[in-house]
Amino acid sequence: MYSNILKIVLIFSVALFFSCSSSDDSNPPASERTYADVEADFQEIDFQTGINDVSLVNTIGVEWFFRVIIPEGDLSSNPRPLVMTLHGAAGGNPDAHKTTACYAEPGFEAIDPIIISPNGGTQDWLQFANQDLVLSLIDLAVKYLPVDDSKIVVNGYSNGGNGAWFYGETQPNLVSAAIPMASSYSTYSTQGTPRRMDIPMYVIHGEDDELFSLEETQEWVEATNSVGSDVTLEVAPGLTHNEPCNYVEYLKNAANWLQTDVWN
């Protein structure tokens, strides 16, 4: 399953750390941190119903900041869908992961999920460091939170929408559906042929998006569907790029699609 992919990411992460550290033997690391340490720290977090803004230190000493939203009710025998929602931009805003009230919380209300919103820092979601972050948080959530691992969704806006495409395409054994919003993600290979997506996707795009062309996204959706993908495109009439909170009603449509078309 996805554990092999996660192991590769973590092994590379540790290898990168030691290769960088070896150049300065005068300042060796105080201690070797393992993924087991990360797991232990995650288990120590006292998650409460509602919003939890927390952090973890990863295996190379980098602090991950992220938000976890736990729905109300007894979840002990009622595992919930997991929504990994990826914020837009990559400007290093320390509060970027705390914008869930804008569209993720109201948009996914109908499926009552656990929501995780990580902070991607100054890198985009396709970079190795953020792959480590996203895949590790999903792994930890599946292991230690009441998550239905058959209902894992990746969602995002703008840069986060590109991430939703990416993880949907590259993690089909982990993610059951992807919901990119206001994104720009080519579905053509370097040879110019369309690539097939192995999981269903629901793409939301503003009619008047001035940053990422609707026409281009339409072309990419049509191209991947021509080779057997199941990608739905919903156009938001009159909406531009820099108004993510106004996309809530379209995200609600996507949540309904999850229930009626993907998980039925």
Rank of each mutant, 00 (worst) to 15 (best):
G161L: 08
S186N: 13
T49Y: 09
A36D: 13
S150K: 11
E109R: 10
T85R: 02
S176N: 02
Y250M: 04
S176E: 04
E32V: 11
Q127N: 15
L16T: 09
S13I: 03
L82W: 00
M181V: 10
V57H: 08
V235N: 06
P81A: 10
G91C: 11
D148A: 12
T59M: 15
R195S: 09
A90M: 14
Q48M: 04
W125R: 08
V83W: 01
L56K: 07
V68K: 04
Q191T: 15
E222V: 01
I199P: 00
E210K: 04
N173A: 06
V153D: 02
N93C: 07
N256Q: 10
G156P: 01
S76V: 14
N93H: 12
P180H: 08
N119P: 08
P172G: 05
M201I: 00
N78P: 04
Q48T: 00
K143E: 12
V9C: 11
N155W: 07
Y202W: 07
P29K: 12
V221G: 01
S3A: 14
E234K: 05
Y103H: 11
T85I: 10
V38F: 12
K151M: 03
P106D: 12
F12K: 05
N159H: 15
G121S: 12
V147C: 02
L133T: 06
P71E: 07
Q123C: 14
P194S: 06
I69A: 03
E249Q: 05
A223F: 08
G121Y: 14
F18N: 03
T187I: 06
D198H: 06
T260G: 12
D198G: 12
I51C: 09
Y103D: 03
A141E: 01
I8V: 06
A255S: 08
E219N: 08
D148V: 07
I45L: 13
V227P: 11
N93D: 15
Y202S: 01
F47H: 09
